[in-house]
């Protein structure tokens, strides 16, 4: 158990173990192998940031390079899933959802309902998201809320290597379409990951810091900032429950409500744009179902309602950080009626 690997390696290991276990698992995406049709090295890239590196050597043509035709290959993954395969397709950056969204939200998400419960579409769509990479407005967005809005999709946002592996294995074994969000800044994060295969059930939030004063609900990269803030605040005598949602559809309402009923204070931290995002959703949930417990207004820590800027000076201002989270927690603690 003491072995440490990166978030990126954890995802790679999950894919490799599931491909070895189940021959219906296949993978595809732009440069997932890298070098298809060229004269040089095969497996030259293993994905644009190397997440699928090495799978070609082990599994050959079960991992495929695709043309830059997201509609075609994401849709092909959906179609193959409805025909008994378990494809894992990579939509390189989630910002590219615009060119293939029909296949995700009109086809994959709706087959089961439209077809009266007879379709099973076990497709996984892996996608990179998030700011902090100096990649500007079209390669940095945090769009998970848009997928969580669609009935029929499951939306997974792992924050650690352990979770990335277990949630990816669950995603592959799951019989519904799953959108799997990988934060590119987290790829190099190291953590303890068991060597064996394991699945983390969806809809089960993790509590990464415990406290009775304030509940911080967050996900993805923001979990790390929230924990940093909680550790700083603990030294000042403010104890925070930090809830890592892990999946936003399904959503672990029970863990959130149990915590807020105990603390009476809520700060939601979300890297996505502030209108109709995870933060507003959680705030609404708590306002509706735990209103009586609230001792202070709900605080939301999100980026401003602007596109992700390019310049490092601006991007650093854009992304929420531990200081902003600590400030929000302090303000709910100091609230007086």
């Amino acid at each position: 158990m003491a072995r440490k690997i990166t978030y990126k390696q954890a995802i790679n290991e999950a894919l490799a173990q599931e491909m070895a276990r189940d021959s219906s698992v296949i993978a595809m995406g732009e440069d997932n192998v890298g070098g298809a049709g060229a004269e040089g090295e095969k497996d030259a890239w293993g994905g644009v940031l190397g997440v699928t590196k090495g799978l070609y050597g082990r599994f050959g043509d079960r991992i495929m390079d695709t043309p830059i035709s997201e509609s075609a290959f994401i849709g092909a993954a959906v179609g193959a899933a409805a025909c008994g395969m378990r494809p894992v397709a990579e939509l390189m950056f989630v910002d590219f959802m615009g060119v293939c969204f029909d296949q995700i939200f009109n086809q994959a998400a709706k087959f089961r309902y439209m077809f009266g419960g007879k379709a099973v579409t076990p497709v996984v769509i892996r996608t990179m998201y998030g700011a902090g990479f100096r990649a500007a407005a079209q390669h940095s967005q945090c769009l998970y809320s848009m997928f969580a809005h669609i009935p029929g999709l499951k939306v997974v946002v792992p924050s650690t290597p352990y979770d990335a592996k277990g949630l990816m294995i669950q995603a592959i074994r799951d019989n519904d379409p799953v959108i799997f969000f990988e934060h590119k800044v987290l790829y190099t994060l190291e953590g303890e990951v068991p060597e064996g295969a394991y699945a983390i059930p969806f809809g089960e939030a993790d509590v990464v810091h415990e406290g009775d004063d304030v509940t911080i609900v967050t996900l993805g990269r923001m979990v790390h900032f929230a924990r940093d803030a909680a550790q700083t605040l603990a030294k000042r005598g403010i104890d925070c429950d930090v809830i890592d949602l892990r999946t936003i559809s399904p959503l672990d309402e029970e863990t959130i409500l149990e915590s807020v009923n105990r603390t009476g204070r809520l700060v939601v931290v979300d890297e996505s744009s502030p209108r109709c995002n995870v933060a507003t959703d959680i705030a609404a949930l708590v306002a509706q179902k735990a209103f009586a417990a609230l001792k202070a207004p709900i605080e939301q820590v999100t980026p401003p309602h602007v596109p992700v800027p390019f310049s490092d000076a601006l991007e650093d201002l854009y992304v929420p950080d531990a200081a902003r989270i600590a400030q929000a927690v302090t303000s709910v603690m100091e609230f007086k009626r």
Binding site: I74, C83, F111
Partner: peptide, 23 residues
């Protein structure tokens, strides 16, 4: 695999069906 309310929606899906048969 379904009539389809989205014009052209079936093209990618049938690539997937054909891929499954091939695999």
């Amino acid at each position: 695999m379904g009539a389809n309310g989205i014009v052209g929606g079936g093209g990618p899906l049938i690539c997937g069906a054909a891929l499954a048969a091939k695999m």
